[in-house]
Nucleic acid binder design. Structure first.
Length: 810
DNA sequence: TACAGTGCTTTTTTT
DNA sequence: AAGCACTGTA
């Protein structure tokens, strides 16, 4: 019969089999949580629950996609399409569009990402005549964000005595005023930030009984993934949605709660059991992912936390190797060491690039790993950090599209009003903004009626041309899909042409990025998923808004109405997309990401870099026990990503803010029992052994020790040395062989012409037909036979004889 | 109006 | 180191 049930262990079966009533699954790392969730959905449907009545909420798009795919596989039919599976933010965005009128928003509202939101905060601070040195936009934004996650409106914020006291003590009494102005501005712009998607969803359900009842009836079964990471807003929404049927299933692991900075609280797990009369609790304690060695270390680490739900995570997997500890001199050496080790492991144990992950606490740490991997010719990909959609040229293009869909969107409008330059400069913009504020209109309305406001005739003409152009785009909205409009915009604004004409390396990259954006729009358009109904503005109104079946049939019969290929739909999904969600990922590359981004993932071989005090645990997060325990959970998450092998690495000193900074090894390393760890590499890595030791207390200077990697200062033994004994004086047993780096072939532009290199200087940027782009780092050789040493971006250092090679100077 | 140069701040994690 | 804001010049 239901063969899928046979694949489960006893507790898993219990969880899947509990169909009605509240259910809490405490799922340890690697215990088959996703399998249980997906099987449970399938089981619900096998027992007659309509797929339209199931809602599953996750934190990442990737998790949602995976869940959907796996349910589909189990079911073997297309019923899974009707399931409502998505992230909190994307599901609520869809619902809010359909219900926008109930909360006074346009259904084509824009979603502001963090950059947009901070920019609005900054604007508002300036308009209130406050000093943005004192009211730092970053800090203010975080404060507003926390308030929203705690469901505190600006009015409540201002009237809350305790909050006011707190702000007064911090000498920031105007925070409430800023919050209020910010909220009003977003509303005026027809925009919501990420937190609004939760906050407004809560308000919608709270204040509109019909809406609440509608969604309660629709979502008879609700499932929440990563419940330990929910904040108050999410908690209250779930509680409201589930109140009618109480068929709520939450899955979480308190040991993996790492998002308290976003308002998440473990309290939600504890509270869950009190909210309902009979909560079934199932613990999944068998780990199917890691070796015994790795899991023991993880268990040991987490046992140092006081606050936790008791559980006993075990595995039947093999013992595996001890985890390895590596100490290097600098962050650059750390990078080299990891790259060397990857190369070694590939050769010795036949791993592929894709089997490796390098994890770190902060995004800035990716640099040294990146450089080392590039030098070795190992393909890699960085997830997170500066995402594709944050690049200037991409944001510019998207800003145009945003204005077309929602001209109230002032952030986008400001961005493009004079780009490419069209004679509407700062003076004009300032005046328009002032007029908008005085007349309580938005910027777009000022421009549309510019003639009323006494702009100079030249300026007026520029404004009119701009307005006419945008209106022309808008008139195409109902007729054209997202891609066709994007192409039209690119052409009419000559934005693409401008980038194309910029032949510098950076210009080339920018042009390519815009092309990539256009490709992604095309892809989106070519794969129209029927997911909703579109209103006259081209914005998705969700099918959920239609209760009457005949109406749905009517709409299904007019497919144009139902495609999601509109520009509005495209914009909605990209802003909620993380680049970790990008699934082009099955190519053979080493993956680099923060530990946060790695949650929910697993890799055969894992490196955790930067195991140093101030970095991990991070200096910003050691002020309270709670903070420190969260850092420890983060370490726990890092460890439990590994299936077979785990390396922990740290550097004696690393560059931070342009200065070489010395750090002690992480306190977490002391918590690993001696027997579980192989420390034979904790002595400076492949290159640094045999040198004098001691991390010293003297200020490290740049170019220390003359020889690059030599430590000249001898002082007291370092913390690590005291703990782990003196580092080995001999060469390690195995030095990774340097495979000849593979050449990454460069495709020169069709118009590649070699330059006259007789006067080539150090520091100049060049292009080589085969090796690609690089920088001249050294000139040598006789005058009649000059030799340039060039550091190529993709192919490392090469000596080029200028008499023979063809180089183009950039 | 636009760009180049200078000086100043940054110091976590993300939907 | 790097990005940003501000200032001065063409």
């Amino acid at each position: 019969m239901h063969t899928y049930l046979d694949e489960l262990n006893q507790p898993q079966k219990e969880a899947v089999g509990h169909l009605n009533g509240p259910l809490m699954i405490v799922a340890g790392a690697g215990s088959g949580k996703t399998k249980v969730l997906t099987t449970r959905i399938a089981h619900l449907m096998a027992n007659g629950v309509d797929s339209f009545n199931i809602l599953a909420l996750t934190f990442t798009n990737k998790a949602a996609a995976e869940m959907k795919e796996r349910v589909e596989k189990i079911l073997g039919n297309t019923e899974a399409r009707n399931l409502y599976i998505g992230t909190f933010h994307s599901v609520f965005a869809r619902i809010l569009r359909a219900e926008a009128n109930k909360i006074g928003y346009p259904s084509n509202f824009t979603i502001y990402d963090t950059d947009d939101a901070k920019s609005v905060v900054k604007t508002v601070i300036k308009e209130l005549d406050l000093d943005d040195k004192h009211y730092k936009p970053n800090v203010v934004y975080n404060r507003i964000s926390s308030a929203k996650n705690d469901l505190i409106s600006s009015a409540e914020y201002i009237n809350d005595w305790a909050i006011q006291q707190e702000d007064a003590r911090a000498n920031r009494p105007q925070l409430g005023a800023i919050y209020d102005a910010y909220a009003k501005r977003c509303f005026k712009n027809g925009a919501m930030d990420f937190d609004d998607l939760l906050f407004k969803m809560y308000l919608l359900l709270k204040n509109n009984p019909e809406s609440l009842s509608k969604y309660q009836r629709k979502f008879k079964y609700v499932m929440i993934d990563e419940y330990q990471d929910t904040n108050k807003a999410q908690y209250e929404i779930v509680k409201l949605l589930g109140a009618m049927h109480e068929n709520i299933c939450v899955v979480g692991d308190d040991a993996q709660s790492i998002y308290s900075f976003r308002g998440a609280t473990i309290e939600n797990i504890l509270q869950f059991q009190k909210d309902y009369d009979e909560v079934k609790v199932v613990k999944l304690e068998q780990n199917y992912r890691s070796t015994k060695s790795i899991l023991s270390v993880a268990n040991e680490i987490i046992s140092n936390n006081k606050n936790q739900i008791e559980k006993n995570l075990f595995t039947d997997n093999e013992q595996g190797e001890k985890i390895k500890l590596v100490r290097t001199m600098t962050d650059n050496d750390e990078g080299k060491n990891v790259a060397d080790t990857i190369q070694e492991q590939k050769l010795r144990n036949h791993y592929f690039n894709k089997d490796f992950a390098i994890l770190y606490r902060t995004n800035a740490q990716s640099r040294s790993f990146e450089e080392a991997l590039r030098r070795m010719g190992i393909a890699y990909r960085i997830y997170g950090g500066m995402s594709f959609y944050q690049r200037k040229e991409v944001k510019d293009m998207i800003a145009y599209l945003r204005v077309v869909v929602n001209p109230q969107d002032e952030e986008a409008l400001k961005r493009i009003i004079n780009y490419p330059a069209r004679g509407i400069g700062k003076t004009t913009l300032d005046k328009a903004v002032l007029l908008a504020n005085e007349n309580n209109l938005n910027l777009w309305q000022i421009f549309c009626n510019a003639v009323m406001y006494g702009f100079k005739s030249g300026t007026l003409e520029s404004i009119d041309n701009f307005v006419t152009m945008i209106k022309m785009f808008q008139s195409e909205l109902p007729k054209k899909n997202a891609y066709d409009i994007a192409i039209l915009v690119g052409k009419s604004t000559s934005l693409v042409k401008e980038l194309f004409n910029d032949k510098t390396t950076e210009g080339l990259a920018r042009y390519e990025n815009v092309q990539e954006l256009l490709n992604s729009i095309k892809e989106f358009v070519d794969d129209p998923i029927i997911q909703g109904v579109i209103n006259e503005d081209g914005v998705i109104i969700d099918s959920i808004g239609i209760e009457d079946e005949s109406k749905i049939n009517e709409l299904v019969n007019s497919p144009a109405q139902l495609t999601s290929a509109s520009l509005g739909a495209y914009l909605q999904q990209i802003v909620l997309l993380t680049d970790a969600d990008d699934n082009k990922g099955e190519i053979d590359v080493v993956k680099l990401m923060t530990i946060h981004a790695a949650k929910g993932l697993e890799f055969p071989v894992v490196f955790v870099g930067g195991m140093e005090e101030t970095l991990f645990p991070n200096a910003m997060a050691i002020n309270t026990r709670e903070e420190l325990e969260e850092e420890r959970r983060l370490f726990y998450v890092a460890i439990t990503r590994a299936k077979h092998k785990l390396w922990l690495t740290y550097a004696n000193a690393r560059y931070r803010f342009g200065q070489l900074q010395q750090n002690d090894s992480s306190r977490f390393l002391e918590e690993i029992p001696e027997d579980f760890v192989d420390k034979s590499y904790a002595g400076g890595g492949v290159k640094n052994t045999g040198n004098s030791w001691g991390s010293g207390t003297q200020q490290m200077q740049r170019g220390f020790g003359g020889g690059g990697n030599t430590w000249a200062n001898k002082n007291t033994a370092s913390e690590a040395e005291k703990r782990y004994g003196a580092p080995p004086k001999t060469t390690p047993s195995y030095v990774a062989p340097k495979a000849p780096p593979k050449l990454i072939e460069h495709e020169p532009a069709a118009d590649f012409i070699a330059s006259d290199t007789s006067n080539l200087q150090e520091g100049q940027k060049v292009e080589h037909q085969k090796f690609g782009f690089g920088e001249v780092i050294k000139m040598e050789g006789a005058a009649h036979n000059p030799i340039a040493t060039v550091q190529f971006e993709l192919n490392g250092e090469k000596k080029i004889m200028l008499n023979y090679a063809k180089l183009r100077i950039i």
